[in-house]
Design a protein around this nucleic acid. Structure first.
Length: 250
DNA sequence: GCGACAG
DNA sequence: ATCTTGTCGC
């Protein structure tokens, strides 16, 4: 494997503390306050896919979808070499650099396509130190970001126990939610049943420049399947890229 | 030693 | 993240 120096992890922690001061946890855009998000035209999804034996090289993906149609209007795949290993709680130091690079390239070459909000696969405020990948990418890009994790990160007293499973069972239809409350009573995110066909919820939290209520409402409105369409397209396309450029041995 | 561990 | 085919249901 590949482990970071303890000293590096300490530096990462202080960087997260420092960047937290620039976080904006409220709605800052006019479209966010509209009942139907009128004014919202472009939503983005970002993702990284890997080849099975290789944890350093990855395909970074950025897709832009029209809203509310959710049709892909832009898509880029790029092979990147990651400079940090995966460490739970520090995902951003591994994935944010290449994703920011794709956003900067878009800004330079097709600024008219800049997304108005970015869906990130992973958590935002719902994080050990309340600064997950969605917050990190949001602050560094200064774009509104929403964190949507497919699996529960057990943090600050939010655990996958019987009570949690019971709350999941109570989600009877798409759009139903329950709050992720820390042991100190703070709501860091919402579990959302994103489609009628999936029992397993997704975990939504604020990344940057959006309120939790708006983030949940927007996520629900972008879900054709369990995973929000922008993230889903980014995942599908990055994997498709690897299949065609790095076909399996057999 | 045991469990947890976003992607 | 990735390893993997079929299978059940609409």
């Amino acid at each position: 494997m590949w482990a970071p120096e303890e000293e590096v992890v300490l530096r990462w922690e202080s960087e997260q503390e420092c960047m937290k001061q620039r976080l904006v946890l409220e709605d800052t855009e006019a479209w966010q306050k509209e009942p139907d998000f009128s004014g919202l035209e472009r939503v983005a999804g970002v993702d990284l896919s890997f080849i099975k034996g290789d944890e350093r090289n990855a395909c970074a993906q950025l897709v832009i979808l029209s809203y509310p149609d959710l049709q892909v209007v832009y898509d880029v795949s790029e092979m990147v070499c990651l400079s940090a290993p995966y460490v739970s709680g520090f995902l951003a130091f591994r994935e944010a650099p290449p994703l920011l690079q794709l956003l900067h390239t878009l800004q330079r070459e097709q600024p008219e396509l800049m997304p108005q909000v970015v869906f990130v696969d992973g958590n935002g405020l719902f994080h050990y130190r309340e600064f997950g990948l969605a917050c990190h990418l949001g602050v560094l890009s200064d774009l509104p970001c929403v964190g949507v994790a497919k699996n529960l990160l057990q943090v600050q007293g939010v655990v996958k126990n019987d009570e949690h499973m019971s709350q999941i069972s109570a989600l009877s239809k798409a759009g139903d939610t329950f709050p992720l409350v820390t042991d100190s009573g703070k709501i860091l995110g919402q579990a959302l049943r994103s489609s009628d066909r999936s029992i397993k919820p997704v975990y939504v939290s604020v990344g940057h420049r959006i309120s939790l209520d708006t983030a949940v409402r927007l996520t629900h409105s972008c879900c054709r399947y369990r995973v929000p369409e922008p993230t889903r397209q980014a995942d599908l396309r990055s994997r498709e890229y690897l299949r065609t450029h790095f076909p399996s041995p057999s």
